[in-house]
Design a protein around this nucleic acid. Structure first.
Lengths: 116, 116
DNA sequence: TTTTAATTACTACATTTGTAGTATTAAAGT
DNA sequence: ACTTTAATACTACAAATGTAGTAATTAAAA
């Protein structure tokens, strides 16, 4: 998936190459997985010659959104703020990140002020 | 899992009762699942008579932490702030939540200031 | 054009997951 | 003590997941 997101589109062997460093799967393995993902409408493809070129149906952003919402619903009472709270408790941020976030939050607050 | 977290410990039929509203599983289903979780060290049990009393091995907090870190690693470059950023972009917060978060962040900043 | 190399098609197989039935045993009620 | 009930033990089975082999086909190289 990651590979498809960063490359946009890729053939089976493209993907195999990209994953090689991490793990050396048989090409048929990759092909099988892609076909299963296709059945579930997670990827789409078109053929070039006899070669399948796959691409992701949902973007990385959409996936982030849905997986995050999922996690929030499952474990954080459905509230984003509870998740952030948890992160703060864990000291999951560097000093500069905190600063950046504070600014972002202020910006978001102003946005809400204007736009009811 | 949720049930075990809120109840602390529970027998198979306790769990069945708790889930009844949501879905009516056969008692053997629940039992099987629990046993499999036990094999994976996700729950533990002790017997009272011939009855199995299960309890979660990892707390809800720990699960939150590990699943959240997982998500962050997978989808948000391993940085919590990227996740929060995403949330802000999605307008995932109410006005009062934003305000609360701003305060929390400020508090966290002060904490970091003191404690290097 | 014949050989070789790449690519897909089809098949396979073990493991995990989701769900539950049947048989047995032990406890509780009468 | 005997029967009903609750609980576990054991078994099952389909679907999903992870991984890959073999056969067939096509494109490219020689």
């Amino acid at each position: 998936m990651k590979v498809l997101w960063t490359q946009g589109k890729a053939s089976v062997s493209d993907i195999q190459q990209s994953l090689k460093a991490e793990r050396d799967f048989a090409i048929t393995t990759i092909s099988t997985v892609l076909q299963r993902l296709y059945k579930k409408d997670i990827v789409d493809f078109h053929k070039v010659g006899r070669q399948y070129i796959y691409k992701a149906v949902i973007s990385e952003k959409e996936t982030q959104a849905s997986m995050t919402n999922n996690l929030i619903d499952q474990l954080f009472e459905g509230k984003s703020s509870v998740l952030v709270n948890h992160l703060l408790e864990e000291d999951a941020f560097e000093a500069d990140e905190l600063e950046r976030l504070r600014k972002l939050i202020e910006a978001a607050q102003e946005r809400q002020q204007l736009d009811p």
